[in-house]
Simulated scan of single mutants.
Amino acid sequence: MKPIYHYTTVSEALNDLNEMGFTYDFNINENEILKNPHQHEVKHIYRYEGDSDPGDEAIVYGIISNSGKKGVFVAGFSANSDNQAAIILAKLCIEGSDQCEI
């Protein structure tokens, strides 16, 4: 059974991932995901839900690229999200669901 991580805040998830070596910022470099999605593997996922405001929802991905980059991508989480990188990462996780730790 894969470990399940529970965090109180997105910052806590990011700090833990950073300690595990996920230091590259895929938000700044999201074109890498957009141009070569299958060269990236989602290893960790954390979904954060705000206590009272649905606008506080976010998802944190821990990603490893084929080139060895370990990093994170943070996106707002909603049914109508139009962030293309987040959509690609969600699809990658579904395709490799046995590899994603939620």
Results as ranks from 00 to 15, higher is better:
I87M: 00
Y24H: 06
E57T: 15
N18I: 10
V60K: 04
M1R: 14
E95K: 13
T9L: 04
P54C: 04
F73N: 04
M1N: 15
D53E: 08
P37N: 03
E95D: 15
N31L: 06
L14D: 11
N15E: 12
M20N: 11
H6E: 13
E30Y: 04
N18Y: 07
A13V: 00
D56I: 13
I33M: 02
G96N: 15
Q84M: 09
I63S: 01
A90W: 09
I28M: 13
T9I: 05
L17N: 04
I4G: 10
S81I: 05
A79G: 13
F26V: 02
M20H: 13
N27G: 04
Q99W: 10
F22T: 01
V10T: 09
K43E: 02
N80A: 05
G76A: 11
Y7C: 04
D51R: 15
N29G: 08
E32I: 03
I45E: 12
G71F: 02
S11G: 11
G76T: 15
S81A: 07
F73R: 01
A75F: 01
A85N: 00
K43Y: 04
I33R: 00
Y46R: 07
N80S: 15
R47I: 14
V42F: 03
G71Q: 02
I33Q: 00
A75Q: 06
V10R: 03
K70I: 08
Y46F: 15
D51Q: 07
G21Y: 05
I88K: 00
Y5F: 12
D53K: 07
I33L: 01
N83W: 07
H38R: 13
T9V: 01
L92Q: 01
D56F: 03
M1W: 14
N15W: 06
M1F: 12
N83L: 08
G68R: 09
S67D: 11
E101S: 12
Y46E: 05
H40Q: 00
M1T: 07
S52P: 13
V10N: 05
F77E: 11
L92D: 01
V74C: 05
D51M: 10
S65V: 04
G62M: 09
V60F: 02
S97W: 14
Y5W: 14
E12V: 09
E57I: 14
K43Q: 14
P3M: 10
P54K: 06
K43T: 12
M20V: 06
A90M: 06
H44D: 02
L89R: 03
